[in-house]
Design a protein around this nucleic acid. Structure first.
Lengths: 245, 245, 245, 245
DNA sequence: CATGAATGAGCCTTCATTCAT
DNA sequence: TATGAATGAAGGCTCATTCAT
């Protein structure tokens, strides 16, 4: 049994190694620069071995996404456990998102690729299910907080809207601002230089707009960020907040 | 002379036709499904002829982007000329954006592609300049309105922020929500079914959050949308607003 | 008639112009870089017009060769008319060859191409005949001198050999040394730096070896070269002989 | 192990087979007639397999050249080891050259191609080094003999010349006469029918002209050839010398 | 299980030549 | 006669996937 376990461990390690290298390639050389030959060569195993782990290139890419989202959800769930008023916890989620993107900068890319190259459809059913699961946890973490806010009376959704609508806006803005930051050079030259800080301000403005109490004018969310960094992520506040908010 | 003109017209028409077909392919089959052979076959001309119009695949894609952005800017500038208070005009811009996306649903895709597949770098210098020009006009239309709002006192930017920061948030949210609408199926099942209407609400919430007067609680922006549809775009209000706002 | 003549002149001029440009392209960009589109663009006429002059690419290349060889034969015949003892006149031929190659450096290339790319076979019958004619004149000039040498007793061909055999050796050496000078970099670094002067010495050695009187030890052929430069080619001796021979 | 070796042998054999077929194509159809598709078809394997052996067309051509030159140098070094006076050994080299050209008639072609189509520059660095090495050995074999002749007093180089100059003449003449034999049909009809024999006579004349003792009038070099054929190449004299010299 | 040779469809691009205007 | 748009065969090269060893 010990032999089997060791073997299994070997396999799991190799699988991770493949994903690490595939991710590097995706980032450095783009979708077209990512090919099975190069991956096999880079890990030092044969192509056939790579195919024993992933039934196709699409499957590998899907696994890459799942793995990345799993990592992201860890940050989100850690943030959700942070103690404080709901909007404080949502601020912690935003911090978790930032930390995740900083630590795994390929996230947005993977997500874009999944969309653009219809990889998802070609991935195995198992991978598709894994994707849906992790997505559900991710949404659960975020929307749970919004739900708590409504329950405790910190926020009242207007008629015709629900908390998911608001979360959709938050998600879209976070994702969109990251991509836009890379695309739109012209706007970039005019706006404040710290793109992340601009994103934060827009996030708080959006929550203010939805009337989530306490409003940013009524509370020091920069302090909340610092506290969350220390308590939820055990990070040096200095490493987290460059500017006051 | 008429003969010459006819021939030239034929060529121009074919160029447009190529772009139309290329755009369809991009939407239906993705970047990798778009190839010169298929385009040639689809327009019923030979590959050589396609290459007489566009010197490379990248050139074609860049032309596609420029053409699309040119179209978008027309909508934006039309909206910017709409008469009303600045936030009304910004609402008209949002309407223009919606109309544009509805009419050219490949916009986001083109933009993503430009980012992901470093097409921009490979395009001819002439195309790159055209791209920059049209981008500048686009930003000018949107930010000009925000600037007017500050000038007339409808909005006061907090210290440390400028109007471009706010516009960045608006742009990111619009772009991001469109992409997210396609990606995130799990969230999609929970939120209100009309994604566009959800986007609109988030946009108004964001403007409220930045304190842009009159707030959505003080003004009927759904009515503004209807008026803008009629006055700026000469469109049937019914065709524009499915839901009341 | 004057109109016709003018037109004809125009046509002839354009034909020359095409050949000039084609030759440049061949030298600068090689056989594969020489194409009909580029030629048409360079002369400012359409491709159709080029095809009115030359029925195919091969035909054009053959014309290039014929024209070049015609130029070469002019040098040879000028040299053959130089007054002196036969070996002096052969020295003048060698000088003519040098001057021709210096002035039309594409000659060897054209000749190599004709051989390598079986262009000759694809050229029109008319061009093939022209080629043969000019070749005959070229041989006539050289071999006529050798024949004179035998007649006047300056040289005696050994049994089993004829003057054409010797001329073949001379021709081969001249052609081969020029090509070898470009190919064989290793040898080039060891030998005397002035490749042309080395060729001259080998030519004289070859004639000495065939016993052509007066031998190079009995006559100042460097002086002959200077005289030939002045008398046959009206060139500055300085421009012709860098080193004494 | 035997299995592995068999596979490896198969691969090596196929590589050779590719070169054999490529060489045939080059000879029969010229540079442009040599293409990867046809090669793949001719060996009965797919294009991909050919590319597993040679990373590009240029690489294949370079390999062709290296292989051929390696073969040639074997002949030269065998000839250089022949015992006799230096000029006898040089005669053996000339015989080796002949035998080599007869056995590998594509040699001149390869060499010309390298020059004309700048293949050398596009080949892999490894191939370029191999090419330089083999060239150095080739020159060493020939020039070593000339050096011995000077050392032992059989030849005295005139002031201003060195042995490499003479070798350059010999090399140029051998190369040039082979090419000229194919090009210049007019001269071919007039000269002695056995082109090879004509080349030999010119070579001996050249050595006589440089004063290399014993002169051809003082020694029976035809006999030397026969001896070299037997001793250095173990060939039937009949197979080597068609005509008496 | 691991290997990596073999496959072959597919892609982008070029260019000599034709022919309607 | 001049034009230049149209052609389409060809060529070099890539790469996901398979399968015999």
């Amino acid at each position: 049994m010990s032999t089997l376990t060791r073997k299994q461990r070997e396999i799991r390690d190799r699988e991770r190694q493949i994903l690490v290298i595939a991710r590097q390639m995706l980032l450095e050389r783009g979708y077209l620069g990512l090919n099975m030959d190069r991956i096999a060569e880079a890990i030092g195993y044969s192509k056939g071995t790579v195919y024993q782990h992933f039934s196709s290139k699409e499957d590998l890419l899907a696994a890459l996404c799942v793995q990345t989202k799993q990592k992201r959800v860890e940050f989100f769930e850690k943030a959700a456990r942070f103690e404080g008023r709901p909007r404080e916890r949502m601020t912690a989620i935003a911090l978790g998102d930032e930390m995740f993107v900083a630590q795994f900068p390929d996230y947005s890319r993977s997500e874009e690729l999944l969309n653009i190259e219809s990889i998802f459809a070609k991935a195995s059913e198992c991978q598709q299910q894994a994707m849906r699961d992790v997505e559900a946890r991710c949404i659960g973490a975020v929307c749970g907080i919004a739900s708590d806010a409504v329950t405790c009376g910190d926020m009242t959704m207007p008629e015709g809207s629900n908390i998911y609508d608001m979360c959709f806006g938050l998600y879209g803005m976070s994702f969109g601002c990251r991509v836009a930051g890379k695309i739109c050079t012209t706007l970039h030259e005019l706006m404040s230089p710290d793109t992340l800080e601009v994103l934060r301000k827009n996030q708080q403005a959006l929550l203010d707009g939805w009337g989530w109490r306490p409003l940013s004018s009524e509370w020091d969310y920069a302090a909340t960020r610092r506290r969350a960094a220390a308590e939820a992520f055990h990070a040096e506040p200095a490493a987290v907040t460059h500017n006051s908010n």
